Computed example of a mutant assay.
Amino acid sequence: MNYNTLIFDLDGTLLNSLDDLANSVNYALEKLNLPTRSNEDIQSFVGNGIEKLIELSIPEKTSYDKFAKCLFLFKNNYSKNMMVLTKPYDGIIDLLKYLKEKNYKIAIVSNKFQEGVTDLNNHYFSEYIQVAIGKSPDRRKKPYPDAVFTAIDELGVSIENCLYIGDSEVDIQTAKNTNLKSVGVTWGFRDKESLKNLGADYIIDTPEDLLSII
């Protein structure tokens, strides 16, 4: 297959954002006198947007009121601290540079809130990626295909030539729901075994490995 369009997940695929996410979750939990979470916990909770992240981070049977406060505290803190420890994974910038030189179309599709996706893309990838789609009230989040279709429309490309790259079960399911081939990356928030069990069409260990697929 000849792919000319690559749609990437953000957290766990392009960016290692785990420390900043964990720090902001624990900031919110501490403010509400709730038990904090380990980085391993947070790693297993990400992928479905910040509402789900907070829902999984707070103790079971926590009141909705406390959940809403925790979400507000997290988002407020994270918005100011999302670029403290976050950085692209090794090899990502080199890959994006190569893809741009070869005229591939590139987009980000994430379940992170749109303002966060826009800010992170502008800060780290604006030279290479023009279309960056996040969570928005006017479309369903992944694994629904809505955001991927939005990205394809904005790029002005044909869906037949698109490939979807991500690190989690949400990403593999999103690709299936959009009828795209999926590439699972092992450097993110899930391991190779999980990606294999989820049915990823391809699994890669380094960003450079993507070149052998496209």
Rank of each mutant, 00 (worst) to 15 (best):
G12D: 08
K52R: 12
T186I: 03
T86W: 00
K31C: 09
F45Y: 15
N179P: 02
F72W: 02
I42G: 09
Y128L: 13
D146V: 05
S24Y: 01
P145S: 14
E55C: 02
I50Y: 09
L85V: 10
K105D: 01
N111T: 13
L73G: 02
K80P: 00
S110V: 14
K196Q: 09
T186P: 03
N177F: 04
K97Y: 03
Y164A: 11
L29T: 06
S44R: 05
L210F: 12
E154H: 06
S168M: 06
D146H: 08
E40A: 03
L96H: 01
T13A: 07
F8W: 11
S126F: 05
Q173P: 09
K100E: 07
L34E: 10
K196T: 11
Q173G: 05
I213C: 12
Q173H: 04
E115H: 00
F45N: 08
L155A: 06
Y104T: 12
L195Q: 08
D119Q: 10
L18D: 12
D9V: 05
L120Q: 07
I58W: 02
A147V: 03
I213D: 09
L29E: 05
L10A: 12
I152S: 08
L21R: 00
T150Y: 02
S44W: 06
K87C: 07
L85Q: 14
I133N: 02
Y89V: 05
Y27T: 08
L96Q: 04
N103F: 01
Y128I: 14
R190D: 15
K31R: 13
Y124S: 11
F149G: 10
S136V: 09
G49M: 09
K100V: 09
R37N: 08
S63G: 08
Q130E: 15
I58V: 14
K141W: 02
Y27N: 07
S182M: 13
Y64A: 10
G188W: 05
Y64H: 12
A68E: 14
E55V: 04
P88R: 01
I54K: 01
D11V: 14
N179M: 13
D138N: 15
N197E: 04
K100M: 06
L73K: 13
N121F: 01
K66C: 12
K80Y: 04
K61Y: 01
S110E: 02
E160G: 15
F8L: 09
Y3Q: 08
F67E: 10
L120K: 04
Q130I: 13
I213R: 04
V185Y: 03
D205R: 11
V170L: 06
Y164S: 12
T36R: 10
F113G: 13
D209R: 00
M82A: 11
P145A: 15
A107H: 06
N23Y: 04
D146L: 03
N33S: 09
P145C: 10
G199W: 00
L71P: 14
V148Y: 06
L56E: 13
L32S: 11
N177I: 01
K69E: 10
P145V: 14
N39I: 11
E160V: 15
I106T: 12
K87E: 09
T186G: 05
Y89Q: 05
E51K: 09
S24M: 04
C70S: 14
G12A: 11
K75T: 11
R37S: 12
P59E: 09
E169D: 15
K142E: 08
S57L: 02
Y78C: 11
L71V: 12
D41Q: 04
L21Y: 03
E160K: 12
L210Q: 12
